[in-house]
């Protein structure tokens, strides 16, 4: 997918540039962009290392458990068909807590584990409603500490690198709620039958 999109972006750019007679601007932009990728990455290096260092402490000292405790009642509400003490529940909770803390690397293994447990309960070729619901939660996961973007903004000279977080949290929360409600509607539709 990205293969076509990337090629399409460059091809369209170059053709439009030809039509507009802006080829010298285009060639300059190619070289400039390549160079700015280097300066941005070097700027990002320090802040990123600092952040991930701090977040590693959060991960290793079990800060996730606190978030997990708060989440448990919510998750069991969203997944009433999964038995409360099934390992799928705790795997989902760990996945969501790691996502909320911006620990993407830690979140994925828990998420895959959760999917495997859910599949054990499902035993069908097509995904169960619970599996689809879990995916929706993952595609709109609330991030309390988006470490990468904070680091990037800091390295680009933002006065207050974390000032966007409140908007991100509000919009993901809205998207998550809307997504789950919408999902509950369409999972019953005949074209999406199990």
């Amino acid at each position: 997918m990205m293969n076509y999109i990337w090629f399409f972006m460059i091809a369209v750019g170059i053709f439009v540039g030809m039509a507009n007679g802006k080829m010298s601007e285009v060639s300059k932009a190619i070289i400039d962009s390549a160079q700015s990728a280097v300066t941005i990455s070097i700027g990002l290096l320090g802040v990123m290392a600092l952040w991930l260092g701090i977040m590693k402490i959060a991960e290793k000292s079990g800060l996730m458990d606190i978030v997990a405790k708060v989440l448990k009642p919510v998750i069991t509400k969203i997944f009433p068909e999964i038995p409360k003490d099934h390992p799928a529940v705790s795997a989902m909770i760990m996945n969501i807590s790691a996502n909320m803390l911006g620990l993407g690397n830690a979140a994925t293994p828990f998420g895959i584990k959760a999917m495997e447990y859910l599949q054990e309960l499902n035993r069908k070729e097509n995904p169960s409603n619970a599996m689809c619901r879990f995916l929706v939660i993952n595609t709109a996961s609330i991030q309390l500490i988006p470490a990468v973007m904070i680091g990037l903004r800091a390295s680009l000279g933002a006065q207050n690198p974390a000032d966007f977080v409140i908007v991100s949290i509000f919009s993901t929360a809205t998207a998550l709620t809307a997504g789950l409600i919408f999902n509950n509607f369409i999972e019953k539709m005949s074209i999406f039958r199990e």
Binding site: G13, G17, E25, A29, A34
Partner: peptide, 9 residues
């Protein structure tokens, strides 16, 4: 690079 081309053109 891709965005740079799109913008400059």
């Amino acid at each position: 690079v891709a965005i740079g081309v799109l913008r400059a053109s």
